[in-house]
Amino acid sequence: MAADNILETRGLTKEFKGFVAVRDVSLVVRRGTIHALIGPNGAGKTTCFNLLTHFLTPTRGRIFFMGRDITGSRPAAIARLGLVRSFQISAVFPHLSVLENVRIALQRKRGHSYDFWRPAATLSVLDDRARELIDAVGLTDFTTKPAVELPYGRKRALEIATTLALDPEMMLLDEPTAGMAHDDVQRISELIKTVACNRTVLMVEHNLSVVSKLSDHITVLARGEILAQGDYAAVSKNPDVVQAYMGAGHG
């Protein structure tokens, strides 16, 4: 495996009772790129994410991250290696403040997380870094608010700040702009572009204008299989892709 391929899957397959959600997917993600995974509903995109982070166990196939076979690693261990995912539904800790949300991630890198005898005040050394991250995603005014009180788009921004706090080698973003108003989509797109400048991003995204603007490379999935790969121009002209989207009732 070439050194500039950060993530590689070989023959990745997931069978559920009676149907195959992901079939023989061999994906290569190059280091430092924004790679988009697109396809109609039910194409197996989220299943792919779950397999990569071992929230689901693959039926067959192997997964390599930075040259290391992570197929059998536990989800938390994969995260610690630097492959960190987000979720389709916004993943925040609702009753922790924005600051605490980001600090939870910083705290993991720092260690001491099993220390039940230390006061939580020892965590305040992380506050400065947490505030930087919160500023970076434009949540400065919300720092002390509980996450549950944030509007939807802001929750996604918080989620990205939390993920960034881990300083991951690679981020998996599951529909980062889903359900967002136009302004928020704009803001999150720019945020992704900024954070991707020195890391790798693999994202599932339905909004094709976001995909066209952001991604260096696109993989199209349909019915669990890879249908086409390439840059936006090439993929969007591919007749199979057009057929798959039209056939499934998507424009």
Binding site: T53, F55, P75, A76, A77, A79, R80, V84, R85, S86, F87, A91, V92, F93, P94, H95, L96, E100, R103, I104, A105, Q107, R108, H112, S113, Y114, D115, F116, W117, R118, P119, A120, T122, L123, T162, L166
Partner: peptide, 22 residues
């Protein structure tokens, strides 16, 4: 404590806590 913070995070959103490496 730092442990209490993680425990609360796990109670609130376990998959997310795992995805952060806990």
């Amino acid at each position: 404590s730092p442990f209490g913070q993680v425990l609360q995070a796990i109670r609130e959103n376990e998959p997310r806590a795992i995805s952060l490496g806990y």
